[in-house]
Write a protein that binds this DNA or RNA. Structure first.
Length: 444
RNA sequence: GGACCCUUAGCCAAGUGGUAAGGCACGGGACUGCAACUCCCUCACCGCCGGUUCAAAUCCGGCAGGGUCCUCCA
């Protein structure tokens, strides 16, 4: 299994730190608004990564934070005249509900900044004690030049950063690149610390949480490519200062989602909220249709294609299940022996093994769908149909494209049999009536 | 101004040295009581120019177009 490591900029063989265990951490949302479909991309992708590891029998320890202390949250609380806590808890719930609707697992570790304040403060103190941070007028800054290879992740040189930087207005810093660990504040929610009354900078929370949850270097740290610099670079700087490691063995960055070729972001206002998308799993399909490192452009037309794809998938899987169910031929423990079925599964797995190439995995899924449709048409080939069905369940489980499958009720079974009988007897108006009942009930 | 990335058929999208996967749409067939669904077939020489090579969409250089990042922005 190969993963593209953003830290080394290479495709590397994945080897977990501990056998059969994967520790992964993904940068989560700042909860001041609903998430848009661009925010959903990393969530869906890393959920898929998790699912794939789990299918390979890894025990996955998955953590992703909620940033619930932030200027934007404060601003929102002032605008709406409610507390920061009310703002953040509302949007945490909204996030979880949106993400669930995309069939992402939500049973992961979800640390919040407000619950980690002591830990973050101690972390910052530790950085000061070790000489990597300094206090200035109530603020605390990280001494970037103490880290020898600062910029290694994002491929930047300190000198280039300085020469390319904009005018620095903060003269409390020793070096314009130094980043804030703690900021004295007088507005909005603030916390007591030995430095001042204030708030932590954004970059410490993730490393502090990782430290507490995992206690060591983790296997995978993921997030959007826009987080590479400065956020992830700064995480690494802090971890190097304290632990002399780079936070994660493998760094993974997903490409951005754009809308009409411009990046989708709340600050630009060109967003489509997940909650407003009608076909949620078609959105998941769409988000996985392009390799995660490539940019993905949203348009109504391209999304519409995946609505079609999703409906086809749903239809085929339902029909396969229905045919097995109505004939009492569903076998849970089927061994896949058919060569063409096995080939699609092999292709699926090797695509996923190759840096989670979901685009190619989907191609394998589509081939299997064709086999399924052919098999459904055949009168009595239940063996193949069972194998195809099993393969489809396997793939859709990993991609998280879950199709609701309900065993047929006795009543509906009777209606179905009556429909077939009517058709056979050429009683077409009766047949059409029964068919309508079945389609209305979603049986066929 | 600095760093980096992208450009494959009408659309979406794989492929990273050996002569273009897949999907959507279109067109042609088949199946069907009708319809839906489904199946089969057809559909590109890879932005432009030059170079390296026996061989390039794939490597190098230039040009054009588009994008991302550059300290509290998530």
């Amino acid at each position: 299994m190969k993963i593209y490591n953003s830290y080394t900029d290479r495709l590397e063989e994945f080897k977990s730190i501990h056998p059969n265990k994967v520790g992964m951490y993904i940068c989560g949302p700042t909860v001041y608004n609903y998430i848009h479909i661009g925010n959903a991309r990393p969530v869906v992708f890393f959920d898929t990564v998790r699912r794939y590891f789990e299918s390979k029998k890894y025990q996955v320890i998955f953590a992703s934070n909620f940033t619930d202390v932030d200027d934007k949250i404060i601003q929102k609380s002032i605008e709406e005249n409610i507390s920061e806590l009310e703002v953040s808890s509302y949007y945490i719930n909204a996030f979880l509900s949106d993400v669930k609707s995309l069939n992402c697992k939500t049973d992961y570790i979800k640390p919040k900044v407000t619950k980690y304040m002591n830990y973050i403060i101690n972390y910052i103190q530790d950085l000061i004690d070790k000489g990597y941070a300094y206090q200035a007028n109530g603020d605390v800054y990280f001494r970037v030049t103490k880290i020898e290879d600062y910029g290694a992740l994002s491929n930047r040189l300190i000198d280039d950063l300085i020469s390319g930087s904009r005018v620095e207005v903060n003269n409390l810093k020793e070096n314009p690149l130094d980043f804030t660990l703690w900021k004295q504040t007088f507005e909005g929610i603030n916390f007591d610390s030995q430095f001042s009354k204030g708030r932590p900078g954004w970059h410490t929370e993730c490393v502090a949480m990782i430290d507490d949850i995992f206690g060591e270097q983790i296997d995978i740290h993921g997030g959007g490519t826009d987080l590479k610099f400065p956020h992830h670079e700064n995480e690494i700087a802090q971890a190097k200062a304290i632990h002399n490691h780079r936070v994660a063995k493998y760094w993974m960055h997903n490409g951005r989602l754009s809308f009409k070729d411009i990046k989708m972001s709340k600050s630009l206002g060109n967003v489509i909220f997940v909650k407003d998308v009608s076909e949620k799993l078609a959105l998941r399909y769409f988000l996985l249709s392009t390799h995660y490192r490539a940019p993905l452009n949203y348009s109504d037309d391209s999304f519409a294609m995946y609505v079609t794809e999703w409906l086809k998938l749903e239809n085929t899987l339902k029909t396969a299940f229905f045919k097995l169910d109505i004939n009492n031929k569903l076998i849970e423990e089927t061994e896949i022996t058919a060569e063409d079925v096995n080939e699609t599964i092999t292709n699926f797995n090797s695509s996923m093994d190759n840096d989670f190439n979901t685009a190619n995995a989907i191609t394998a899924l589509q081939s299997l769908l064709r086999l399924a449709n052919v098999s459904i048409r055949k009168q009595d080939d239940f063996s193949t149909l069972n194998q195809v069905y099993k393969g489809l369940i396997y793939m859709t489980e990993i991609l998280g494209l879950k199709v609701e499958l309900n065993p047929i009720s006795n009543e509906n079974r009777q209606i179905y049999l009556d429909w077939q009988k009517a058709r056979k007897n050429k009683e077409f108006s009766e047949a059409d009536k029964l068919r309508k009942v079945l389609t209305d009930r979603g049986v066929i």
